[in-house]
Amino acid sequence: MTELLMPILTMTALGFLFSAGLVLAYKKLRVEEDPKIERVADVLPQANCGACGFSGCRAFAEAVVHGEAEANGCPVGGDDVAQDVAAILGVQAGKIIKKVARVHCRGTHEAAKNRGLYLGISTCYASHLVGGNKQCSYGCMGYGDCVRACLFDAMDMGEEGLPIIREEKCTACGKCVDACPRNILELHPLSQNILVFCRSEDRGPMARKVCKNACIACGICVRASPDAIVLEKNLAVIKDYKKIDPANIPEIEKCPTDSIGRLRVDDDR
């Protein structure tokens, strides 16, 4: 009889000992958590892409519940998720502003000069490590790291050597933005109709020498719309597109190198 009782008693005693330890530890170490966080996290897309500005879906859920983010802060989930989140929190979901990725370079094969023949691994990352294939060290190299990073089949590499973004498929998750070693892609509201198509920080003559479509920081666009556009590091930067008066756009588009202006059909579609 004791052979039978001993192991049972021993394991029961050990079990009680450890569970008592865990209960004590739980009391000390418990993390108070709002049950809403779990429910919000459940309706999110779980892409953990970081497009909301938080480190993942869970972090976003916490921020929303604590009131640090808006219910419509998840660009990937779009309106549906925003409504669900708002329903859980019992607030009104604001109108979601659809964003898309845009390419800040017009250095096509024709416009930007090649530096030499690059025969290395054909990814942008690898090419960037050795200085790239083009003379411009800021422009798109065209090896399509962004296209491969896209989870939503919204990007293609165009014949001119620049990625083409399909607006209707782009969810603004920002994967391509992270994938680009030269930071050429950026998320912008779909409604923003004017952009700077250059990242070159080279001085004007140098920039122009290596690429026909480089911003040479001449300042024509700044004079046309001084509230909205400024020059930073030899490059025009749109600070606030909402301040651009539509009447000024023809003036801005007098850009001698075509590096600022409205999107053309061949930039994005």
């Binding site: 021993t10 394991m11 050990l14 450890f18 865990l22 170490l29 993390v31």
Partner: peptide
């Protein structure tokens, strides 16, 4: 059996600890 008990409890403890 008893080692499984030890490991399971300890991992629970570590998990709580790291989460905190």
């Amino acid at each position: 059996v008893s080692f499984i008990l030890v490991i399971a409890s300890l991992v629970q403890l570590v998990e709580m600890f790291i989460r905190k």
